[in-house]
Design a protein around this nucleic acid. Structure first.
Lengths: 253, 253
DNA sequence: CGGATGCAGAATGTATACAGATGAAGTCTC
DNA sequence: GAGACTTCATCTGTATACATTCTGCATCCG
């Protein structure tokens, strides 16, 4: 067996984690047909690890929501309806709203405020340049970072955990649907609205305006709703949606 | 080995499920010291199943939030601060609020409304009797049932899943802290307030008043906050709190 | 020709063996 | 007497063997 060379660079990373990452990748790339059973032995062959770590990975991915337990045993690739995707985004928005409110009510340190502000500044900088050539990859990165900081501000391990779960579905994470805008003439418009919401929520938190902070974050998440709607309407943009292969196609007249 | 007779009544229930249930029980009853490592081999001895199902159960319980992964490997029993318990309840309330809002906005069938109403009627009946001798066990059951129905009304698998997670922590579930009231003279008062909220949220859902339904459910969950506060103040009531052994005791002057 | 039955292959659930790593205890030295 | 080192027991991560169960196909009967 070509274990040492082919498989692992790091020995510190367990086979289980490797299997989990690899399996998630396979699912998200659509290399495992949605709805179909995920055969353990086939995964053993494909990933080059034994059944035990594959099994662990399968359990974790089921808890994560990407797989579904088959009553008779084993797991299958989960599929999502449009409705489920919308709901997943709404859940994420609600929890981020809660995080923002908790942060506002609790009050956050000057250090945290500064790190959030500098993150927003970086985004401002990014968008200050000419229109239509915004570095989307960089934006996605900074956007994710801001959302991370916000969750951190809530200072709640339990909430962070729940949010992690909520964002585990690839299309539900904060930055997932941003790239969909890239083919839209409205992109810069939407991006500035989103960024304004970032600024507003930070201001609200600073002023301890909990209800306002919460409302803004909820609405902020709904931008993703719009982007999803756009992608569903123009199916050609679906390839910009992560995990789109798991979404059951809309039946169109 | 005394497998057939001693262990399983049903053969349809897998060893993994058995192990999961048994382990959860051990953790919740405090038979495994909080913070301590959960040794796989010891559990093998104690539960009478092999390492493989024990392992699966451990992974699932970690995802559930009752165990914590130890960096060097294995799992330990998680402990919770007061703050975390409060937050867990707040998260549950927020998600239930979302469920109520979705139900209201979406509109629910007459059948669902009727089943919810009859559940509330049963609670009314229960409380119509003389004060101070309310069958709390029955109340807890009906209360849990109503919350289940409500979640069902939202008709969202994703939300149901998240709520299941949120209620997995034993002290965060809707009925968990009800028994704490049993030693309080205010019990019946609190119970009627709670029941009134049940009625109000159902009315709001029926009238499609989403914001109102959401607000009520959030506030409804905060009754649990009060009960927790009471139990934390009167430590002697902590034995009525499920999973109380996992909660780090308040440092009192 | 359709449906039911039986059989074979495969897949999962379970148990256990093995190796590397971790942690603790005891001893030795300064 | 205290601290560091060494050694040993234990634990987890991993692989694999075994048995039961399920699934799908082919064949047979009505």
């Amino acid at each position: 067996m070509t274990k040492t060379a082919e498989n692992g660079s790091d020995r510190s990373v367990t086979q289980t984690v490797r299997a989990q990452l690899a399996l998630r990748d396979l699912v998200l790339r659509g290399e495992l047909n949605p709805g179909e059973r995920v055969s353990e032995l086939q995964m053993v062959e494909r990933l080059g690890v034994s059944r035990t770590p594959v099994r662990s990975a399968l359990i974790r991915l089921e808890e994560e929501g990407l797989l579904e337990a088959i009553p008779s045993g084993g797991f299958s690739v989960k599929t999502f309806s449009e409705k489920e995707v919308f709901e997943a985004i709404e859940i994420r928005g609600t929890l981020e709203g809660l995080a923002a409110r908790l942060a506002a009510e609790r009050g956050v340190s000057r250090t945290e405020l500064r790190s959030a502000a500098s993150c927003l500044e970086a985004i401002d900088e990014l968008m200050r340049g000419d229109t239509a050539d915004v570095d989307l990859l960089r934006y996605v990165e900074l956007n994710a970072q801001f959302h991370e900081i916000l969750i951190g501000m809530a200072d709640s391990q339990a909430l962070a955990r729940q949010l992690e779960r909520a964002s585990a579905l690839p299309f539900a994470s904060p930055s997932a649907l941003v790239p969909v805008q890239s083919r839209s003439p409205e992109m810069n418009y939407i991006l500035s609205v989103a960024q304004d919401q970032h600024h507003c929520v930070l201001a609200a938190i600073e002023r301890r305006e909990g209800a306002r902070a919460e409302a803004i974050m909820r609405e902020h998440a709904r931008i993703a709703h719009r982007n999803l709607e756009r992608a569903l309407t123009n199916q050609r943009d679906m390839d910009l949606v992560p995990g789109s292969v798991l979404i059951k196609r809309r039946i169109r007249a």
